[in-house]
Lab assay of single mutants.
Amino acid sequence: VDNKFNKEQQNAFYEILHLPNLNEEQRNAFIQSLKDDPSQSANLLAEAKKLNDAQA
């Protein structure tokens, strides 16, 4: 993981990586967004979790 991520951002990265119901395309999009703007990690994680739950 890129060293410019802080602890919260790293946690978001790993959580998104391991959400079971996202397809690869969705997962990659969230990860790319996280890399583009790490400050949005909490929002991105919340969105990813919502999508993950919706696809459960």
Rank of each mutant, 00 (worst) to 15 (best):
S33T: 13
N6C: 06
Q40K: 12
N43H: 10
N28R: 15
K7P: 15
I16N: 00
L34G: 01
K7Y: 06
Y14T: 09
A54H: 12
A54F: 13
Y14K: 07
K4G: 14
Q26Y: 03
K4V: 11
K50I: 08
E25M: 13
F5E: 11
N6W: 03
L22W: 00
A46G: 06
A54L: 12
E8Y: 02
K50C: 13
H18S: 14
K7G: 10
P20Q: 08
D36W: 14
N3I: 04
E8C: 02
S41G: 03
S33Q: 09
L51K: 07
K4N: 14
N23P: 06
S41W: 15
K4P: 08
Q40H: 10
N3P: 09
N43W: 15
R27E: 00
L17C: 12
K35N: 10
L44M: 06
A48P: 00
D37S: 05
S33G: 08
F13L: 08
A48R: 00
D37T: 10
D36Y: 08
N28A: 13
L51R: 07
N43Q: 05
K50W: 15
A29T: 12
K35S: 06
I16Y: 00
A42Q: 09
N21H: 05
K50V: 13
L34P: 00
N6F: 02
K7E: 08
L45P: 00
Q32D: 05
D53C: 13
D37A: 03
F13K: 06
L17H: 06
E15M: 15
E25V: 08
Q9K: 01
N23K: 13
S33P: 02
N52V: 03
N52K: 02
Q26D: 04
N52E: 03
S41E: 01
V1G: 12
S41V: 11
E47L: 15
Q9G: 02
A42E: 11
E15I: 12
D36C: 14
N3C: 11
N23W: 14
N52Y: 02
K50H: 07
D2V: 02
N3A: 04
E24V: 11
N6Y: 02
A48C: 05
P38D: 03
Q10M: 13
A48K: 00
E47A: 13
Q40V: 07
N3W: 01
N43G: 05
P38M: 05
A56H: 10
L34W: 10
V1T: 08
S41Q: 02
N21E: 06
F5K: 04
R27Y: 01
A54C: 12
H18K: 09
E15L: 14
E47K: 14
N28Q: 14
L19H: 02
D36T: 13
V1Q: 07
F30W: 03
N52M: 02
E25F: 12
H18D: 06
L51N: 04
I31C: 04
S41F: 15
S39K: 09
N28D: 05
N43P: 03
A56S: 11
Q10C: 12
A42F: 15
L19Q: 03
N3L: 01
P38K: 05
E47D: 02
E15W: 15
P38A: 07
N23L: 13
N6R: 01
R27W: 01
A12M: 03
A42G: 05
E25S: 10
K49N: 09
L44E: 01
E25I: 13
L19P: 00
L34A: 07
D2A: 03
N23Q: 11
F5N: 07
L44I: 08
E24Q: 10
N43V: 13
L45G: 01
K50D: 06
K49H: 03
F13M: 14
F13V: 08
P20K: 07
A29E: 04
Q9Y: 09
L17K: 10
S41P: 02
H18P: 00
A56L: 11
R27Q: 05
K50T: 12
N21R: 09
D36F: 14
V1D: 04
D2T: 02
E8S: 04
L45K: 05
N21S: 09
E8I: 02
N28H: 08
Q40W: 08
K50Y: 12
L17S: 12
L17F: 13
I16M: 09
F5Q: 05
Q32G: 10
A48Q: 00
A29G: 07
Q40E: 09
D37M: 08
N23V: 05
N3S: 05
Q10Y: 06
D53G: 11
N28Y: 14
P38T: 03
N52P: 01
A48T: 01
K7W: 05
A48V: 03
A54G: 11
I31F: 10
R27L: 04
A56M: 13
Q10H: 03
N21D: 08
A54E: 13
N21Y: 12
I16L: 13
Y14Q: 08
L22Q: 00
P38E: 03
